[in-house]
Design a protein around this nucleic acid. Structure first.
Lengths: 168, 168
DNA sequence: TCCTTATTCGCACGACTTGCGAATAATCAC
DNA sequence: GTGATTATTCGCAAGTCGTGCGAATAAGGA
């Protein structure tokens, strides 16, 4: 998404008002690669602005989505996640932590897919399921992440239960 | 999933009982490519067995999933969908109807993805978003669906609202 | 400072699932 | 077949995630 200042400007252009809640949320979402849920973002926001309502978080996030500043994502976990990256990109999910990472794929057009006859593709979303190996004692030098060929074990997805239930 | 008879056999092997409800659901899911929701399946089941409980549908579907006979899918629409196809495959979603189709992709390994350093891919799921052109007056000759190269307009996903809310 | 009306925010409700427990029925032994 | 054992079914309540609504509040212009 654009910088908080730019988003603020777009808001005014549209006759929307600049409230402290919105400004806080702009800054919390800017460059936020954590793909937070509304609840998660609300929790963080509450630290800086006690009393801010979850309702407002949802509302503002919806506005940002309508304006194309962020993207909504239906994760596998039931809760909506908000993605401040609106570039064409994909995702990797760590099965252990549930963390979600942005992934750039540059040759999607080369996929050979047997699509239903007459199906017009508008866009493709790819999710890499796996796990992030934790090699602690290594200087986390934010590796250049150079292009790499996917090596997916041809595995059937392991049966996984849904996760909406109580956490009790 | 396996044939109703085979699934029934597996159930017995595991000391589970063969109830009319389960048998009905086995047959309704077998070769079912519609990716039904629990509610949808319950509706169909109710016609053949009035009074069957939605609770039982959920329960049986969960069992089948645990046994690896079907797969659970979190669609974009909020409701779980059940997929009787457990082969390694992917999906295409029609934006108009919400219909879900199975798609086979045969060269996933060739994707060039910039994954997070240390990320081990276990499996990949691809969803083609688009629409199914409806050419009526054509003999729906179940086209051979020969491999085809994806031609996705490099489009940012259009902002879409969530869809859990009331239908009122 | 005052006024207009966009926003915030809490509550209740809706969609989708799951936990629970009593009633029912499948299966086994005789 | 009959009876006993215990897996299943099924309805209701409760939980999670989001949204509609309306009153109270506050942003922004005159």
């Amino acid at each position: 998404m654009h910088s908080p200042a730019e988003v603020a400007a777009r808001y005014k252009e549209q006759g929307r008002r600049l409230t402290p809640q919105r400004q806080l949320l702009f800054s919390l979402m800017h460059n936020n690669a954590s793909h937070p849920t509304a609840e998660g973002l609300h929790e963080v926001a509450s630290k800086r602005m006690p009393g801010i309502s979850l309702r407002t978080v949802y509302q503002t996030l919806d506005e940002l989505s309508d304006m194309g500043e962020i993207q909504l994502m239906h994760g596998d976990g039931g809760a909506l996640r908000f993605d401040s990256n609106v570039d064409e990109h994909h995702h990797a999910v760590c099965a252990e932590t549930g963390e979600l990472f942005d992934v750039y794929v540059d040759n999607i057009e080369s996929l050979r897919a047997q699509l239903p006859a007459g199906f017009e593709v508008q866009n493709v979303s790819i999710v890499f399921h796996g796990r992030l190996a934790k090699k602690k004692s290594q200087t986390t030098t934010k590796s250049p992440a150079r292009p790499q060929t996917v090596r997916a074990k041809s595995t059937k997805r392991s049966p996984r239960r849904t996760s909406r239930g109580s956490t009790k």
